[in-house]
Amino acid sequence: MSELIVILIYLSSFIFFFYAIGKIIEIRHLKNLESREKALSGMVLTNTKKLPGDLIGEKAWLCQGSVVIGADHFKRLAAGLRNIVGGRMKSIESVLDRARREAVLRMAEQAKLDGASALINIRLETSTIGTAGNGNGLMIAEVLAYGTAFRARAKF
């Protein structure tokens, strides 16, 4: 009996450790994303095929950003439990949301560096690239964002 308790304490501290580290990484990442998104607020980002009517494009090139992201052990456990009863997997939602924002930001930052003022026809693609290590991991996903960067000027 006491052995069982020791094992339980050991396991729960293990899980708590991953929860804490995962949470810290997540919070820091979200803060980082917010400040970078603010810095890019002047740029036109759309997923339409044409430039907004008041802009004229002068030069166009392809631009892309990608990120590979994994969920931490705690999230995986939470998702595994959720998988039994069904419903929203909030823990995994936040991972993919962060990955998408990061990919779009990388693309937009690269475009800005190259002198673009607008990014149009943005496409987002998500794919799982398999599980790492022993294969019991739930997910590693890659998010790719790509679009056409424009050097544009106002019409009038």
Binding site: V68, I69, G70, D72, A132
Partner: peptide, 12 residues
């Protein structure tokens, strides 16, 4: 890296 989550730079 997969244990604690976050970006996996090597794969990126």
């Amino acid at each position: 890296k997969n244990l604690v989550g976050g970006e996996i730079k090597g794969y990126t």
